[in-house]
């Protein structure tokens, strides 16, 4: 079948074996302050940064948003929503979704989250305002360091998110808010 014929054709045609390069060596002291670099990069990707010093303050921040009459889904608290909770909502009306971020990347301002953090995969994308809670000590320098920490085999889905969705497909003018969230906030927890 096609599988066999493709593999056969590759074996017949492939160039002589070329070795893998040694793992890349990256200097570790490039940025004066990882948090500062992360904030800079996240802001330039369109993220709003709120520095916060305790989980209680995070709660307060969320409650303040709710009082504006917005529909908020907060998955950062201890009482994780049940499957039933998830199945009764289609989330298309969600104004704000709050999730825990696992790691931040200083070099590009992105935050890594995986399936455990979002419960259902569409959640971080369908909301108009995504809020990620990230601990400052979870900020790593670059993608090499982050990938060393990520365990892909133990998750079904994971994503780096850097700012609100955006596009520049019309005359290269940057527009915030393409198909995903229009706002993106990172609550940086010290």
């Amino acid at each position: 079948m096609s599988r066999e014929s493709i593999l056969k054709s590759i074996i017949a045609n492939k160039p002589a074996k070329i070795g893998l390069p040694k793992p890349i060596e990256i200097s570790n002291n490039e940025y004066r302050d990882l948090t500062e670099k992360f904030i800079d990069m996240a802001k330039s990707a369109g993220s709003e940064i709120v520095e916060i010093d305790s989980m209680e303050k995070v709660m307060e921040w969320i409650i303040r948003q709710k009082s504006d009459g917005k529909v908020v889904f907060d998955l950062t608290q201890e009482s994780v929503p049940t499957q039933q909770f998830l199945s009764i909502h289609d989330f298309s009306n969600s104004d704000i979704v709050v999730l825990r971020g696992q790691m931040g990347v200083a070099e590009n301002g992105a935050v890594w989250i995986d399936e455990h953090d979002m419960l259902i995969r569409k959640l971080p994308f369908i909301t108009s305002h995504l809020v990620l809670v990230l601990k400052k000590n979870k900020i790593l320098k670059d993608m090499h360091q982050v990938y060393n920490q990520i365990d892909l085999k133990n998750t079904g889905f994971g994503v780096f998110i850097a700012g609100p969705s955006k596009t520049a497909d019309i005359e290269q003018s940057l527009v915030i808010g393409a198909h995903g969230p229009i706002r993106h906030t990172i609550l940086l927890l010290s």
Partner: peptide, 28 residues
């Protein structure tokens, strides 16, 4: 992936990373 993700968006659109870099491992 670290090597390629670092190069791709910078080369393509001049961003340090694309907005969404989604890793699909298993079906939901």
């Amino acid at each position: 992936l670290a090597v390629f993700i670092r190069l791709l968006a910078r080369s393509a659109t001049g961003q340090p990373i694309t907005n969404y870099t989604s890793h699909f491992q298993k079906p939901e």
